[in-house]
Amino acid sequence: MPTKKKRPKRKAAKPPPERQRRAGKRPGAGHTPVIRAPGPLQYKVVELSTVDEGSLERTLNEWVPKGWNLDGVQFAMREASKRPAMAFVFFTRESEAPAHDTEEARERLMRLSETGSPTAELAAENARAHAKRTQAQRMPISAYERLAQLAGLDEPEPLEKGLTLEPEE
């Protein structure tokens, strides 16, 4: 004898009453959030070479009281193991907007224009030293003489002029 399929039960005519939500039951519930103007963020990255719950706890307990907010944790895995080899813990915090002192910037630009930058001074000093080294060698020398200098010979061997070997007949 074939079995009868059971019918689903009929739905009630009216839906059940909604539950009342109680404000203040959860932490932060019922409070209006404080919205601050976003300021520039500072970032901090802490590298952990030993990854276990103790090192993660110590890192969080060290930096959160100093005003840093946990932003995330990134794990670096090994192929052969399911345990992470390293972890990078990211923190952020708001910092004050830097104050721009236009007068100080103008004074610094004036000093740099008068004295030049440290890089320009170093380049000028190197150019003067190179000019002194090359001043003695104003006369152009032949490639043969330069090779003799590089080889450490005091004077190159004089070229013998007039001697040519002719092939024998």
Rank of each mutant, 00 (worst) to 15 (best):
H130A: 14
P2V: 06
R83N: 15
E47W: 09
L159F: 14
E57R: 13
E160K: 08
E53N: 08
E166N: 10
E79G: 12
S142G: 13
V34D: 05
E157M: 13
A123E: 13
V64D: 02
A23R: 02
L56Y: 07
Y144K: 12
L48Q: 04
G39K: 03
G39L: 00
P2T: 03
Q137W: 12
P118F: 04
Q74V: 13
V51E: 07
E79N: 08
A87H: 04
F90T: 00
A85Y: 08
S81T: 14
K82P: 06
K11M: 05
P167A: 10
A12L: 05
G162V: 03
T3E: 12
L165V: 14
V46L: 05
R106V: 02
L70Y: 11
S117M: 06
G54M: 13
R111C: 04
F88M: 08
E157C: 04
E157G: 01
P156W: 00
A85M: 11
E107C: 04
R108E: 05
S113P: 01
I141N: 02
T102M: 10
N61H: 09
M86N: 14
D154H: 10
E160Y: 11
K9I: 12
K11S: 09
N61I: 06
A129F: 02
L48K: 04
P2K: 07
H130D: 10
E114T: 01
A123R: 10
G116C: 07
H130Q: 15
T115S: 09
T3S: 13
A105Q: 15
P98S: 05
G162L: 06
S81R: 00
T3C: 06
L41V: 07
N126E: 13
R111G: 02
G39D: 03
A131R: 11
L70R: 05
R83D: 15
E96Y: 02
L165D: 04
R78M: 14
L56K: 02
T59E: 01
V73P: 00
V64C: 09
A123Q: 11
R111N: 09
D52V: 00
L56T: 01
R10P: 03
A76M: 06
A99F: 10
K44M: 10
W63Y: 15
P84R: 12
E104C: 04
P98T: 08
E62I: 00
T119A: 14
R78T: 11
E96T: 03
R7Y: 07
V34K: 06
M77I: 03
A151E: 15
P16S: 07
T119V: 08
V51P: 10
E57Q: 12
K9V: 12
K6C: 02
T102P: 01
E121I: 09
E160P: 04
S117F: 08
M139C: 02
A143D: 14
L109Q: 12
W63K: 14
L48P: 03
R7C: 05
W68Q: 00
A29E: 15
A127N: 07
